[in-house]
Nucleic acid binder design. Structure first.
Ligand SMILES: [Mn+2]
Ligand SMILES: [Mn+2]
Ligand SMILES: [Zn+2]
Ligand SMILES: [Zn+2]
Lengths: 139, 139
DNA sequence: TATATAGTTTATAATAATTCTAAACTAGAA
DNA sequence: TTCTAGTTTAGAATTATTATAAACTATATA
């Protein structure tokens, strides 16, 4: 099914997340991680692209489950852009984004490209979990 | 129905947004704007609170419509926190937020409390529409 | 003030994204 | 090879939101 030098890497990724390396998961891995550039996607777009190539069909439920599993295992990152739809990112390093409200696409902003020189202290007993900025842009 | 010195203000708010001052809209106005502090809410919580006091019942559809109308008229601001639900804010000045992932509540951060000393230039032909930060906090 | 009408409210249906369910299937331990 | 816990799947359910269309109402104007 998968002909890829990265196979072992994917199996390892899955094992380390307590997930069995199934045919479907390896296919999704290949699709997500076998690329040079950051990949931003929604479940909808991922599902369409994966199931276009006619090859093996993977159910929508499995795509949801796998994306969710990778997200909580830390191999994908969820990006909040709009209220309607979840976006995911294969770039799991801490970084920022432009979100284009016209094309509805995300673009990476390297972490060093935004400097927060003043940040408030969180309320007592709470700590900051995440401080990544989404800059909304339009024409 | 409404006994409030702010009545005229609400009528004016509505008129200036090309909305007729109906009983329902004035009730919602009173509920939203007749308070000293910033009010953060979801349609769900707003609906519950408005329709608790047994008084007049306002349909969920009207609450959605009115919140949406006030948002596009600029009398409410929409805040992106989670993928599932829209949050709204009666504080329409540009400002930032803490979002508590436990209690799912928003807290204002005054605009001056966050200083962005470096911000990237948007892609050619695009401009920044909004740069408000949501800092996710938890225990 | 009465009438007409465009705007509004409402219950309910529809939609979109996501999650749940439970039966069929499969990886891998023994 | 067998067994079992984990997985996949189609489809149902759920949640937030938007659309529909009939009944109602604010208000312009006769
Ligand atoms: Mn949802
Ligand atoms: Mn939705
Ligand atoms: Zn990214
Ligand atoms: Zn606020």
């Amino acid at each position: 099914m998968i002909i890829s030098d990265n196979l072992k890497m994917y199996v390892q990724k899955l094992r380390s997340s307590n997930l069995r390396p199934t045919k479907q998961r390896l296919n999704i891995c290949q699709f997500l991680f076998d690329r040079k550039k950051t990949f931003h996607f929604t479940v909808e777009t991922l599902n369409k692209k994966i199931n276009k190539n006619g090859a093996t069909k993977i159910s929508l439920a499995t795509i949801y489950n796998t994306v969710e599993a990778f997200t909580s295992a830390g191999y994908l990152k969820e990006i909040l852009t709009s209220k309607n739809k979840s976006y995911y990112d294969t770039n799991i390093k801490s970084h920022h984004h432009f979100y284009d409200e016209g094309s509805k696409e995300l673009t990476d902003i390297h972490y060093s490209q935004i400097k927060l020189s003043k940040v408030p202290v969180p309320p007592k007993g709470k700590k900051i979990k995440n401080l990544e900025v989404v800059i909304r842009i339009q024409k």
